[in-house]
Design a protein around this nucleic acid. Structure first.
Lengths: 260, 260
DNA sequence: CGGTTTGTTGAGACCCTTCAAGCCCCGTGG
DNA sequence: CCACGGGGCTTGAAGGGTCTCAACAAACCG
């Protein structure tokens, strides 16, 4: 913990420090940053804050100048139609960067809603005052990688909601979630925590909850997945990939892209 | 045409110059650029090239380092599934910038297919060697605005394909196309050229061509649109907006955003 | 002019939705 | 302690939206 030995820096200690280090780990998983950039982040990160499920973390139109890292819990990028329908555009999982954009002055195009209790930690604005502080290259790259993955997920979501059947949609979503959680270290042995209700999955896939339920049952009946409580286990990975539309063969775990 | 008077620059004249000026107009419609940036673009733009319908302009995985402006014709961002299904993610219309990204080294996540005969003009790489040439701020802003609109359209496409009915999907798409063409100066009196077949619309909306056909007929029967040949006229704009899910009221023409 | 693409129409089947009801779990309050 | 209520999960039945298949007309193109 050589960070603590740095002269003149007011870095917290104990659990507060741990949260910041966790956030830093997530950042470093996106792109390589310099030691001085790490220090900058550690110093200017806030303490972790918690928000209850259902709370709106970011309103449509809000300026994207307040980056946060999700430490635990799930959130969802949502659009609400005038008549009450809701469409989930994307999930935000632990380790994901939200509330920011590589484009200075950009505004949120949709709300971010807590799907579970959510623990986040605020970071300094990464894009705006970068040049002044001299921490540009690495942090900019972090933003760009995050943006790149986000765009990948949007494209996948279009294909999912566009031309797949309900079974394929569900497989595609479960596979994406698994791969993302796996990369974040939150999935082992093809098993992961799925802390959201079937209502939310229905909103993401544009299906009714009743049909999500029946489709899920089919997936279990066919021994492709298996669940107890909120834990989901993939028991036939190749079949899941095939149904999800992924090209047969490897599971894509070794690839560096999110494309499914 | 003071451009021609510049000493030491090899700017073409006649129809070749006209194409470059058209491309420059499209760029300037995205964001303000300096006079020297304009000169840079005019000098390094290539001549216009034409590609037939069906041709693949950009392959998945290709590096996004060859910007082009569409001068005429339509293209489509497409994903192909192993079993032959196709999903159109986005349309590229005259004036749109393709084959580039604000992220240096980014790669195409989907193919770009000519939907009609397509006339394009190549520009110098805008993102890569920017700092060296000194043409950075304005051109970077152009890229970011283009990217921002692209992202807007992706989100709209998710909502469209996610939780709308066939009628609503079609209205939403027609409205987006109208607004984009209107901004590009290609629509007047709520009438525009729709040079694509119903098959392509079906691929974009994730519906069968048969159902697109019937839905289109319903739209005409309800006197919301009207068509002769490949020209489409919106005859009940408020109704179209309402069905498209837009909040009742203005048509959104005065707003600066693409959100529908 | 023939062949291909596009638009159109009908009939039947299938996927998915809606509505309704019941169950289980859990937190709340009496 | 139990009663109560709410949210999530499950199930059935009926209906509708959309698909597939098939055929044909019309437009387009070489």
């Amino acid at each position: 913990m050589k960070i603590l030995t740095l002269a003149g820096t007011a870095v917290p200690f104990g659990p507060r420090l741990e949260r910041r280090l966790a956030a830093l780990r997530h950042i470093k998983a996106l792109a390589e940053i310099t030691e001085s950039e790490s220090q900058f982040l550690l110093r200017s990160a806030s303490d972790a804050t918690s928000a209850p499920a259902g709370m709106e973390l970011l309103h449509v139109g809000a300026e994207l100048n307040q980056p946060r890292i999700i430490l635990s819990g799930w959130a969802g990028l949502s659009v609400f139609l005038p008549d009450g329908r809701r469409q989930l555009l994307d999930f935000a999982l632990p380790g994901d960067l939200i509330g920011t954009s590589p484009r200075a002055g950009a505004r949120a195009k949709a709300s971010i809603i807590c799907l579970t209790q959510l623990e986040t930690i605020k970071l300094p604005a990464l894009a705006n005052g970068l040049d002044a502080t001299g921490h540009s290259a690495g942090l900019l790259h972090v933003l760009q990688v995050a943006q790149d993955r986000f765009e990948d997920r949007l494209l996948n979501q279009i294909v999912r909601n566009g031309c797949l059947t309900a079974l394929e949609k569900l497989c595609s979503l479960l596979l994406e979630l698994y791969l993302r959680l796996h990369r974040a270290g939150l999935a082992e042995q093809e098993t992961f925590e799925l802390p959201i209700s079937q209502v939310i999955i229905a909103d993401a896939l544009g299906l009714s909850t009743v049909h999500i339920n029946r489709t899920f049952q089919q997936l279990k009946r066919d021994r492709i997945v298996q669940s107890e409580g909120h834990r989901l286990a993939i028991t036939n990975f190749p079949a899941l990939c095939r149904l999800a539309g992924r090209i047969a063969g490897d599971g894509g775990l070794d690839k560096d892209t999110d494309r499914i």
